[in-house]
Nucleic acid binder design. Structure first.
Lengths: 252, 252
DNA sequence: TTAAATTTGATCAAAAATAATCAAAAACGA
DNA sequence: TCGTTTTTGATTATTTTTGATCAAATTTAA
């Protein structure tokens, strides 16, 4: 086994277990502790996990968590939300798809639609739908945001403003009855706002962990949202508070 | 078994297995380890798999591999042209990169530049340069052309017209002293024309098989081109005819 | 706090893999 | 056909990787 392979195995083993000791890894991979230490140092240098005394633990910086990483937080709920959201997509629709992991989950479930037109700024969405014969894709142009694997910027907003869609499937970083919709960053909020302003129906995909939380940039009120698609873990009290605000809630 | 055949077999074997050692491959294909090593190095140079100590493993950029370029005819010449063209790219440049396999070959050789700004409509180019820390990418928006793995259309042309670059690296489907530049399709010609009109210096990458040939859509004269980068197989007579037309020819 | 136990980084030698070199074999072109 | 070029496999020197050892650093326990 080459050290490149070993490194991959170590990363996924540590990600799966949360944390592992040098000794556990050395046993699991039948390698000497010295080698494991060297590997761990290399890997942590690359920023893929956190070195601890005696071993390593998983790095959970939400920004770096790639979409391919199946071990992300709230995986099951996001999957369920994605599936439910896909039910609102019909043949012939013109839809905006935002970047973000929950919206990405939808894609797998809409690949068999026909005559669908997807307008997106998300590279994972592009990659996922690229092979679908019944779907034509309009890619939003502009600066590539490597961290978010998406296109952002003024140019991208201009692009979106030239189109009109039936439905927009969007994600946010926080939502609450008091502050409305919030995002981690202004650039992302600009894009989402553009989607909202150019679509007939706005569907917000948001797992329960983000509901009731506020992120730092406020960019819109709840009144903009036609449907909130979320998971079963959303408390009844919060649900009631949001329904009070006139939100149509779809709960997994 | 030819080198090309073997190469294909190695790539698919490694992709199927995830990873294979030099010895496993040498047994499977009945070739000496020395040959397998040579092959592996060539293949990993082309970026189709990752060379490891002791073997190779499959390359999986989870989001963007689907756009990886499939290698076709005239491989070696295109590779050489790409390498030469890369020499004309300097740190800090703003460049247009056209879609097409020869231009794509450049990418691997410019990954280590710093402060480079790349404006492109090619998905393979995007995938290849995505990881390069010194390069920022501006993706041209518009309709995705799945067959060419690129963005085309009126919207894309508008996008390009908003920018000005130092250099444009373009490809064509045909070039001759009589008819000038020709393309397979009008959509592609529109994009290339837009690149030409918005860049200070135009560098045409074109292997000798396309020189002297005409494709069906004429879209520009040779006078637009500042440098023609081609391979060693270009006949002396043709070379002379093109030089007559004022072309600066760089020959591998 | 000090003392004991554990973990680490550095160093080194052995083992494994590689690159470089060269001659034989095969493919190619005139 | 013959001479040239390309490809292949064997040999050898070099480089990389690994595991062991041990002193220094860190953590734990008393």
């Amino acid at each position: 086994m080459s050290f490149q392979e070993r490194k991959k195995k170590i990363v996924s083993a540590v990600n799966a277990a949360g944390s592992l000791s040098v000794f556990e890894l050395s046993e699991k991979l039948s390698m000497s502790p010295a080698t494991i230490r060297r590997d761990l140092n290399d890997i942590s240098e690359e920023g893929l996990l956190i070195r601890t005394h005696g071993g390593a633990m998983k790095m959970d910086n939400p920004v770096l968590t790639s979409f391919a990483d199946k071990s992300g937080a709230n995986e099951n709920n996001k999957e369920t939300i994605g599936k439910m959201a896909a039910d609102f997509v019909q043949d012939g629709d013109i839809i905006f798809l935002d970047c973000g992991s929950t919206v990405f989950k939808m894609c797998r479930h809409i690949k068999n639609r026909n005559g669908l037109k997807v307008i997106t700024n998300s590279l994972p969405v592009l990659a996922e739908l690229f092979d679908a014969p019944g779907i034509s894709i309009n890619l939003i142009g502009g600066e590539i945001d490597k961290q978010r694997r998406a296109v952002h910027g003024e140019r991208a907003v201009q692009h979106i403003d030239q189109y009109q869609a039936n439905k927009a499937f969007i994600g946010v970083d926080g939502i609450s009855a008091e502050k409305g919709l919030t995002a981690h960053s202004e650039v992302e909020a600009m894009i989402t706002s553009a989607f909202v302003r150019n679509a007939d129906e706005i569907l917000l995909l948001c797992d329960s962990s983000k509901i009731g939380k506020d992120s730092y940039f406020r960019f819109g009120s709840l009144a903009l949202i036609h449907k909130l698609i979320t998971d079963k873990d959303l408390g009844n009290q919060t649900t009631a508070a949001l329904k009070e605000k006139g939100l149509d809630i779809v709960k997994g």
